[in-house]
Design a protein around this nucleic acid. Structure first.
Lengths: 237, 237
DNA sequence: TCAGAACTAGACCGTATAGTACCGTAGAAG
DNA sequence: CTTCTACGGTACTATACGGTCTAGTTCTGA
């Protein structure tokens, strides 16, 4: 017994910041373990014992850092949402100066879809949806930091692209939402309902992204290129 | 106490079929109560005691009709899915002979969206999503009876409309999926994540449906009518 | 009228949970 | 080396759950 792998000897591991004192390390460990367990088992199915065990921490310590199961849950969802929804924003705003909007939209769509379809994010979405009743503020946070954020940035840049004549629209927010869901809905809804037993391959995701962008450009692009906006996305799954 | 509203006196209520014997009535009551409790609290959060109490039935009786909590859950989800996904199919296939495809697509989209956005169905979707891990077959059932069914019917009729020249497409399954999600995604995802605190009004839903159809026709319609495919859906809360 | 089936009420079992109390120990600061 | 704080381990409380069992009651069908 007690054959734990000596989490940190007298010399702290290089990956741990030197100013991260023991208490902070424990807190991190608890957060990580809680994220894991909550994402895997949901809120009611997760037990504090399991979280403490996975974090290699006594339950007492867990309750010293987080007063409640509720507040621990809120914390891990908030931070998971934060760390999940950052770096696409820049790529969207850069689209304003694109000289090949079609190509850049395709690239952006692929990036967005790959991001949303990462297993961690899918689990997080499932978790937030299932607990939206008990934790309404987490649903709001997820929406605002996730699709809301993306669509707001898209709307802004679509507005300018429309002024430039690169897109035809009179409601940029609506167009942004249509873009977003044309790209994401098919694989996202399949993943939500069919589980991740047969996860979509990156190639399939790229095809869905491309097909969504083609449809979007058919609806909101300049009036050229009037071939049918599809080219077989494989309709996998 | 015991001021219950006398579920059925010696003379059975007219709403109850006369040939519905006591056992069948009890079974119905259990199913109804279970549906209620499961939809409200989720699978782990629902207790058999609460279900039995709500059904005004002893726990023993509940276990006589359904061997397990699991099987009771499966039953109620299956039958809820069945009763939810029926009567749109006909309207879709009739679309084949439409002489005003645009108007009929708008009408169909409104019907579909109103159906999907009913609170019961939204709760059911949430429940299935959150339990897709524990009950993969229920996720499959929901998908096949719900969006899968709709999209399959749409694909079939879109195929024929394309032959007739009323639509331009070369992948009817993809086009059907795009139609479906253009119409549904915005309010559906809002409802999933933001809860039903501010449920979308029927008028808002109609606007979302119309906007989705306009975008769809911009992408897949005949090459006429090249004004911007939007007309303000209100982008409600 | 009467036997048997179906029901009720509630005790009961084993287990699991959230959260707390106790106490001995390890690590950092002086 | 001492001291103080945080931690580990674990037993504990109180509660809740799924599921079973018993004993008494009500309904159904002939």
């Amino acid at each position: 017994m007690d054959n734990r792998p000596v989490r940190a000897g007298p010399t702290p591991e290089p990956s741990e910041l030197p100013d991260e004192r023991r208490s902070a390390r424990k807190r991190r460990a608890i957060l990580d373990a809680a994220t894991d367990v909550f994402l895997r088992n949901g809120y009611p199915g997760a037990s504090m014992d399991e979280i403490a065990a996975l974090a290699r921490v006594s339950k007492q310590t867990a309750y010293k850092h987080f007063s409640d199961k509720r507040s621990l849950f809120s914390e891990i969802v908030s931070s998971a949402v934060d760390e999940a929804g950052d770096p696409v924003h820049d790529e969207i705003v850069e689209l304003e100066n694109s000289c090949d909007v079609e190509a850049d939209l395709h690239h952006l769509a692929r990036q967005l879809l790959r991001r949303v379809m990462r297993p961690r994010i899918l689990q997080l979405r499932r978790l937030v949806i299932s607990e939206a009743g008990r934790f309404p503020e987490l649903g709001r946070t997820f929406y605002e930091q996730g699709p809301g954020r993306t669509m707001a940035a898209l709307a802004e840049v679509f507005e300018r692209l429309a002024v430039r004549g690169a897109l035809r629209l009179d409601d940029s927010v609506l167009a942004a939402a249509h873009f977003n869901w044309l790209v994401m809905s098919i694989p996202l809804n399949q993943a939500m309902l069919l589980g991740e037993d047969q996860p979509a391959t990156p190639a399939q995701l790229d095809r869905y992204a491309d097909a969504g962008v083609r449809a979007f450009l058919g609806a909101y692009g300049q009036a050229k290129r009037r071939s049918a906006p599809t080219a077989s996305a494989g309709q996998g799954g």
